[in-house]
Design a protein around this nucleic acid. Structure first.
Lengths: 161, 161
DNA sequence: CGGAACGTTCAGTCTGTACTGAACGTATGG
DNA sequence: CCATACGTTCAGTACAGACTGAACGTTCCG
């Protein structure tokens, strides 16, 4: 692995760490992101200099998250991993899920916590409806992103592919 | 603090922890979220059963994030904290910032990492443009949320307030 | 049937960091 | 001025969880 790749995978490891996930998961993800071919667990362990145990655990976790895909080569017992073809939608879904967990807690609080203040109740309801609105808007935007060729053009939305 | 409030603040602490932030920060945030009046550092420390040092450090961190506001009562030397009036926009901005950090790394990788594969290059460019598109769409949605009374109605976007 | 080559699991270690208590600097009021 | 009441800072501790090495179960090939 060359210097720039190492720099990038390390950086991705730090980003993952800052978001509360294992650093190695980030490094694996980073490496596969700039890899053309799928990588086996042994390649990952050797390439990143980590134990096979960590490679296995973290790659599987990333696959469950949906950002990685496990593939098998015919006539080869190794497990190979590669970036999921719809990486973007999965990272999006993952982030929305985290956000949803937060908003669910707010909703449960509004229902269970004894709140005397009208202002607080309005605050919680306001947050919940803002969240619901944004989820809807993001969903629509995703639909438009998936099917942009509706003949009307998507002027001003930035370069596409 | 009653049982349900404790349950909620603890849950918020766990959510914060899962996102890589100190648990106490989440508990402070949760408590202020269901509090009508601002709370002093001493109240926070006593109410949550934590040291004043933690209360000070974490409340200040939350204020720097923009989810809390420091206010001062006239004729009172205490620092008081309360939920920021535009909590929603700040949490949104915070999440976009994290996402941006991630996408910046992808962009830097495309520019610095030696990549032979055309497929990989297209993958990175695809992710970047998808991100740019979504940021634009979210920005527009936020604008619409801020100024919904344009006379055209926002049918189907969920209950408002 | 062995035996090698896989991936997974589990107990143990080790590092980062959240959290605390005490010391500190500062402002206010008597 | 002294004393009290703040918020902040800092060194030390304690804990969670990432990471490892070895043991394990399984599959495939000779």
């Amino acid at each position: 692995m060359d210097t720039q790749t190492t720099r990038f995978t390390d950086r991705m490891g730090q980003i993952f760490e800052a978001e509360g996930r294992p650093r190695i998961a980030g490094r694996i993800f980073g490496w596969l992101l700039v890899s053309d071919q799928p990588r086996s667990l042994d390649q990952i362990a050797a390439g990143l200099g980590v134990s096979k145990a960590s490679a296995s655990t973290n790659a599987r976790m990333l696959a469950e998250m949906g950002v990685l895909e496990r593939v098998s080569m015919p006539g080869d017992r190794h497990d190979y991993y590669r970036i999921s073809p719809d990486l973007f939608e999965h990272t999006m879904a993952e982030r929305l899920k985290r956000w949803q967990r937060f908003t669910e807690a707010v909703g449960d609080a509004r229902r269970t916590v004894p709140i005397r203040s009208q202002r607080v109740r309005a605050r919680l309801r306001g947050y919940e409806s803002a969240y619901a609105y944004m989820v809807g808007a993001i969903g629509h935007a995703l639909d438009r992103w998936r099917a942009p060729d509706d003949g009307s053009g998507v002027a001003g939305e930035g370069a596409r592919r």
